[in-house]
């Protein structure tokens, strides 16, 4: 049986920490705990509570993404100030969400859910794995399709957490997720630069190069990971 108790405790702890001031690390932990529990709900085949976690993650994600961008030390001053203003504008919305009773009610409801039988978890894990294989084929067909890469990234993350829940975590998935993370951050930086009217042309060009490099790194990492993934698919009886 796979019980969510420890992770529900982490979610509650991160929620309490994120409510105090502007603790960026707590917001990150809250987002990750929420993703892990969403993966657990998926393993259990639950429909409910996933939207509640997604609502919480959306509010955390908007601020957290800017925290990550602002951690870079090579940002032009005007762009940095613009990002900081943007983050400051998002913080009240995050604070409202963190103090919304829905957060505590979600934790409360999660804490009461019974452990998932292993056979149910395994059946649903195979579905996640099949989804990765399917999305991987879409990426193989078109390497430069950012949407396909993004969809693959999301399912890989679900697979990583699902495997961790059944005690079969795979380091290669963590490495792969890191490569996808760099690509995602660069895509976001590019999108925000497109919105920023006073962008430094040299920085825009450098971001374009970073984006190409990040995309190439992801494709390399994905290609390298495929034998591990196929082995995993075989082990879990998933074609």
């Amino acid at each position: 049986m796979i019980a969510p108790d420890r992770r529900v405790g982490q979610l509650a702890h991160a929620l309490a920490a994120a409510r105090v001031g502007d603790d960026t690390e707590a917001v990150h932990k809250l987002r990750v705990a929420s993703r892990r529990l969403a993966a657990w709900l998926r393993l259990g085949g639950y429909t409910v509570l996933r939207d509640d976690l997604a609502w919480l993650r959306a509010a955390c994600g908007a601020v957290r993404d800017l925290d990550v961008l602002l951690a870079a030390d090579d940002l032009p001053t005007s762009f940095r100030s613009w990002l900081e203003e943007r983050r400051a504008a998002l913080r009240p919305g995050l604070r409202d969400v963190l103090h919304d009773p829905r957060c505590d009610t979600t934790v409360e409801a999660l804490s009461r859910l019974p452990a998932i039988p292993e056979d149910v978890a395994h059946r649903n894990l195979v579905r996640v794995l099949a989804s990765v294989v399917r999305r991987g084929r879409a990426v193989d067909a078109k390497h430069d399709d950012v949407e396909a890469l993004h969809a693959l990234r999301r399912t890989l993350r679900r697979l990583r957490f699902a495997l961790e829940w059944v005690g079969a975590g795979q380091p290669f998935l963590v490495d792969l997720q890191d490569a996808f993370g760099v690509l995602n951050d660069t895509v976001l930086r590019k999108r925000l630069l497109d919105e920023f009217l006073d962008a430094d042309p040299a920085f825009v060009r450098a971001t374009g190069r970073d984006l190409d490099a990040a995309r190439a790194a992801v494709v390399r990492a994905w290609t390298k990971a495929q034998p591990n993934l196929m082995e995993l698919a075989e082990r879990w009886n998933c074609s």
């Binding site: 429909t47 509570l49 996933r50 939207d51 509640d52 609502w55 829905r102 009610t105 979600t106 409801a109």
Partner: peptide, 10 residues
Amino acid sequence: LIDGETEVTA
């Protein structure tokens, strides 16, 4: 039967 979102509420 659900096409949209679910929400838990006390």
